[in-house]
């Protein structure tokens, strides 16, 4: 009976670890693809062009692949956090919004932005809808996860870091929206916002992947 329980617990515990690794992989692959594209594209102006503009250039598939892997990784991270946190409204909404944002990343990758100098298309419109929804949904999810961390014994000591990183992401997003409205260095502001979101994702994925095997996991 005891042995059976150990096996059962081991199975439950291993999943968040795998999902944490998936989150780590997704965020790393996306960050790596962006670094690669920035190094290989001298024609893209970092301060003005959005990262989505890479889709329409040389090695556009690298961006699409990176973003799709990122989306799947975030879905995994979302599932992993769901397994690892206590049930309740915070967990439910954080999981839902983070999952929606992850789906939005994939939709934005698969429906490319309109190429520069072309009239707007429906495909470009889908890209716009997905990107518009993704950032704020993920931001709300980050804060909800931070609050959920405070209610769980294992995550409690990580709540401050999570909250700080979420606040940095909020500032990043606010900066991006401001730059977008003012039409000043929107590309740079978008990169900074992306970096702030990726920082939270990488940090939480790492925490999940490192410690999930040795602690109790909520059903």
């Amino acid at each position: 009976m005891q042995a059976g329980e150990t096996v059962k617990q081991g199975t439950i515990m291993r999943q968040p670890r795998i999902f944490g690794l998936a989150g780590l992989l997704g965020a790393s692959v996306f960050a790596g693809s962006l670094i690669l594209l920035h190094l290989t594209h001298t024609d893209i102006n970092w301060t003005r062009h959005y990262v989505s503009d890479f889709t329409n250039g040389r090695l556009g598939w690298v961006f699409v692949l990176g973003a799709v892997v990122h989306g799947f990784g975030n879905l995994g991270l979302s599932l992993g956090l769901r397994q690892s946190l206590d049930p309740g409204s915070l967990r439910a909404w954080a999981f839902l919004l983070f999952g929606l944002a992850a789906a939005g990343i994939m939709v934005a990758a698969l429906f490319p932005i309109d190429p520069v100098g072309r009239y707007p298309t429906l495909v470009g419109l889908v890209h716009r809808v997905a990107t518009i929804a993704t950032f704020p949904l993920e931001l709300v999810a980050l804060f909800l996860f931070s609050a959920a961390f405070a209610r769980h014994p294992r995550w409690r000591r990580r709540r401050v870091t999570s909250f700080v990183l979420s606040t940095v992401a909020a500032v990043g997003l606010a900066g991006f929206l401001l730059a977008f409205v003012l039409n000043r260095m929107a590309g740079l502001a978008e990169r900074l916002a992306l970096a702030s979101f990726l920082a939270w994702e990488l940090w939480v994925s790492l925490q999940l992947a490192r410690s999930a095997s040795g602690v109790e996991v909520a059903r």
Binding site: I113, D114, P115, V116, G117, Y119, P120, G124, R128, A186
Partner: peptide, 15 residues
Amino acid sequence: LADGSFSATAMVVVG
């Protein structure tokens, strides 16, 4: 000469 960095409206401006 149009600023095409905001691709969604660049062609609308040109139009």
